[in-house]
Amino acid sequence: MKNIAVIFKKQIRDTLKNKMVLIQFLMFPLLVVIFENVVKIEDMPEHFFVKLFAVMFVGMAPLTCMSAIIAEEKEKNTLRVLLMSNVKPAEYLVGVGSYVFVMCSAGMAVFAVVGGYSGTELVRFIAAMSAGIILSELTGAVIGIFSRNQMTATSISVPVMMLFAFLPMLSMFNDTIKSVAQVTYSQQISELINGIGDSGIQAESLIVIAVNFVLAVILFTVAYKRKGLET
């Protein structure tokens, strides 16, 4: 626990100085505040931008931050210093993962406030968002593990991030895209968030998210066993 806390604090200290990571955490929460207050279109669904940007936030921020942080530490050989100083790879990953989760939770709080969620709706919103953040973190960690440096991480994470972040939005306009997007966790999280006001939860969404989670864990395990953290 001590080493996890050290990694967590290190990341917190680095946040304000790391503009690339900071912008990921701030961009969509700021956009949702602006759009929800400025853009008023007749017949637009209630809190349209909260639902739209929340899914983009979940598909983008945790994924790019995890991969960028891990890849930067590998590129600059600071990860090796930590591992030589008794930090276990698992402690490092949990430390960075919990930092990204906490930072994304702060963004999630902004969405929840702007969306006006409370009671059961709030619980469902938090559960859906948390599942998405964890899945995106796992995907980002896999990219970070496979990347030797930040440039490689960016070139891999951008298309993957765009797939998860923008597919739910594009599926609103095209049924073919929607049918493809159904197998992604971000599409299902989008549907869970859009259905927060409904009485029930679609079992299909939970199954797809669970399958995505199992696949992400398998991918992460394979990546970690093959590459480790240092190569």
Binding site: A5, K10, D14, K76, S85
Partner: peptide, 22 residues
Amino acid sequence: NFGVYERLSCYDNLKIIAGIYG
């Protein structure tokens, strides 16, 4: 080839290791 955390101060760089070693 061991790196330092370039955005962090010298003190904060050492604070990380200090935290690990207690």
